[in-house]
Amino acid sequence: MLRRSVLAGVALAGTLAAAPLAAQDAQEYTIGVAIPSATHGFMGGLNFHAQDTIKRLEGVYPQLTFVLATAGNAGKMVNDIEDMVATRDIDALVVLPFESEPLTSPVKAVADAGIWVTVVDRGLSQPGIEDLYVAGDNPGFGRVAGEYFVDNLESGSKIVILRGIPTTLDNERVEAFEAALDGSGIEILDKQHGNWNRDDAFNVMQDYLSKYPEIDAVWASDDDMAVGVMEAIAQAGRTEEMWVVGGAGMKQIIKRIMDGDPQLPVNVTYPPAQISTAIEMTALGLVSQTPVSGRMIIGSQLVTPENAEQFYFPDSPF
């Protein structure tokens, strides 16, 4: 009900504001957006940016209708996509596959039906299905962090790593991080899975602190994990001993980098707003003749106290 009245309002505003556009291209399009539900910080940010972008685009292009579905597992996502094709007659699909393997053939079926497919972040296991691929740079995410460690630690320094949930994405990041450290003489004491979860990271870090008398730096590889890690370090009273690098640009962490917190010198981005890039480009491809097919990799950048302000989104939940 609410949604319908909002749509009506947007449509009304649209006839006033975007009248020339509508005249240009009266054909209506429906875009389906299938993303994982907001189960953790990063996905929460991604859901926020997806809804934000959809609201913005519905205002700008009145001829576009969006169907947003969030799924808690791969099976539900497959059902969502089938429903979109069967009942909503979508012209384009923007999908962040919950898992690569189970989503590959359902998405291929959508592509085979002549529907535009944009894949975000996690690639399908078979190349060439999607028309547009938008993703963050996972090896870059590890490499940029690794380079910072090499530049700021002496040879012989000892570090520990917290890994995410065991996935190819996590493997790519950690491999690139280790490759960047190659030959620097920095010793990696341990790497265990903190599952991108604060509580798990807290426990793993507590155990690292019991096990290793000397740790010079921690690559937490994610900002949620960085929060748990810092709390464990504070509890052990070893705050002065080591610094922590997280990742993905959570707003609270970015704020602390802006404020020059010595324990959090830098961060590496892996923007949840990449979903916005994907939806915007898909919409642009439908309503105009702008070519948007291909691969778009959004680079991972180093956030420092000097540039942190441009990565700070106080309204986002992440």
Binding site: A38, M43, G44, D224, P317
Partner: peptide, 11 residues
């Protein structure tokens, strides 16, 4: 709780 936290974290 997801709804209360708007998909993010309540601090």
């Amino acid at each position: 709780v997801t709804w209360l936290a708007d998909g993010g974290t309540l601090s």
